[in-house]
Nucleic acid binder design. Structure first.
Lengths: 207, 207
DNA sequence: CATAGCACCGACCGGTCAGTCGGTCGGTTG
DNA sequence: CAACCGACCGACTGACCGGTCGGTGCTATG
C-alpha cells in the first residue's frame, strides 16, 4: 500500500533526522575527534549499525548535518538580501534573524571554522563551498550595494563583510558571557561599531 | 669540565627546542588530535622515547609550546602598552609588531581558540590565563586609556578590544588570501575601520 | 680502566574508535 | 503462506595512538 511506503520512508527519514539532531548537539559542545559515533548513536537512540545504515562515514554525517543546517538558514539570509532599503536596514534585518536563532544554531556557524582542518580534500571543499555561499556571500551582496549607493566608503566588499561577520560573532559572544543587553541592544551596538567606528564623536562639541 | 656540562645542557635544550619547533609547525597546519606524537618526534628527528624524555605528555608539550611562544611575544606587546601617545598610535604600534611576525607566529594566536576545547580543566586554565594576559589584556589596557581620555566613545573596554582583535585577524587573513596590500596598508585599513567605521564620510562634500 | 649519570632509543602495551557483517524483525507483495 | 525487503541490531575487528620501560652508548670524573 502507498500508505505503508510513506510510513517506511517517514520512519527512515525520522531516524536520519534524529541522528543529525543528536550529532548537532554533541558536535557543538565537543571537538570533532572527541565525539564518537557511539555517543551519537546512543544519543539518537539507535545503534552504531543503525547509524551507518544511514550515513556512510562519520565525516559524511558531519557534512550532512552542516548542509541541512545551512539550507535551513538560507531562508533567513535570502529574505534580507532581497529586501528593499538601506544597507544598514538590510544588515540589521539579516543580523536580527541570526541573533534570534537558538544558541545551538548560531554555534554551528563557528563549528565549520573550528573543525575545517580535520577534513581532507573532498569533504573540506564541500563544506567550504556551502558555508561560503550561505552567509558571507549574502553579506557581501548587501555590502556591495552599500558601496555602490554611497552608503559605505569604497573598498573591498569581501573584507568588509568578513569584518562585519567577525564583529557580530565577537560582540555576541561577549554579550553572552555577561548577562546584560537585549537583542536590539546588541544589534545596535554591532551596527554602530561597523558603520561609525569606536572613536568618540564630537556630538555635543564638548572638546 | 664546565664546558662539557654546558654542552650537555645545550644539547638537551636544543633537542627540546627542536621538538617544540616541530610541534609548532605541525599543530599550525593540523588539528590537535590529528598530529600524533610519532609525527612530532619524526619531524624533530628524535624517537618517541626521546620526546617523552623531555615532555611528560602530549598536552604538556602543547602547553609548553604555547607558553614559550607567548613569552616571546610579550616583549612586543608590553612595548606598546608602555608607550606614551594616543590610543591610535599605541594600537598601531602593537598591531604593527603583530603584523610583522612570520605567518606561523600569527597563526599560533588562533590555535589556542581552535584547540582550547580539547583540553581538560588544568591545562585549559593554564592556556586561557596565559593567552588572556598576553594579548587581549594589553589591548584592553590601551582601549581603556582611550576611553578615559575621550579618544574612544564610552563603552565596555573588553568588547571593544575583542572587536579590535577580531578585525585585525579577519583583515589580515583576507589580505593574505589576495596578494595586494603592504603591512602599512593593512594596518591603516584596520585602524580606520575600528576608529571611523565603514560608512562613507562626507569629506569632499561630493553628495 | 671503572663507575656513574644522562640523553636517547625502539619495541611494546592497553585502550579507543571508526567501520563491518551476519543476523533479527516487522511489514509488504504475489 | 512463502518469499522478500529494508530498517536496525550489536558483537567484533583492525588500525592507530598515547604512553612505558628496559636497554644502549656517550661523556665526565676519580
Amino acid at each position: 500500500m502507498a500508505q505503508s511506503v510513506t510510513d517506511t520512508q517517514t520512519r527512515s527519514e525520522a531516524t536520519a533526522a534524529r541522528i543529525i539532531a543528536a550529532a548537532r548537539t554533541l558536535f557543538v559542545s565537543g571537538n570533532y575527534a572527541d565525539v564518537t559515533t557511539d555517543m551519537i548513536a546512543k544519543a539518537a537512540d539507535v545503534t552504531k549499525g543503525g547509524l551507518y545504515h544511514h550515513f556512510a562515514s562519520k565525516e559524511q554525517l558531519y557534512v550532512s548535518m552542516m548542509l541541512s543546517d545551512l539550507e535551513a538558514k538560507r531562508l533567513i539570509f535570502e529574505q534580507a538580501t532581497a529586501m528593499e532599503g538601506s544597507c544598514r536596514e538590510r544588515l540589521a534585518l539579516l543580523t536580527r534573524g541570526f541573533l534570534e536563532l537558538p544558541d545551538e544554531d548560531r554555534e554551528l556557524t563557528r563549528l565549520v571554522r573550528r573543525d575545517i582542518n580535520t577534513f581532507s580534500g573532498d569533504e573540506r571543499d564541500q563544506l567550504v563551498r556551502a558555508y561560503q555561499s550561505a552567509l558571507p556571500e549574502q553579506v557581501a551582496a548587501i555590502v556591495t550595494d552599500g558601496i555602490n549607493n554611497g552608503e559605505l566608503a569604497p573598498g573591498d566588499a569581501r573584507i568588509l563583510s568578513w569584518s562585519f561577520i567577525a564583529l557580530v560573532e565577537v560582540v555576541i559572544a561577549r554579550y553572552a558571557d555577561h548577562v546584560f543587553g537585549s537583542t536590539e541592544g546588541r544589534l545596535d551596538h554591532v551596527l554602530d561599531l561597523f558603520f561609525e567606528g569606536a572613536a568618540a564623536k564630537p556630538t555635543g562639541g564638548t572638546e
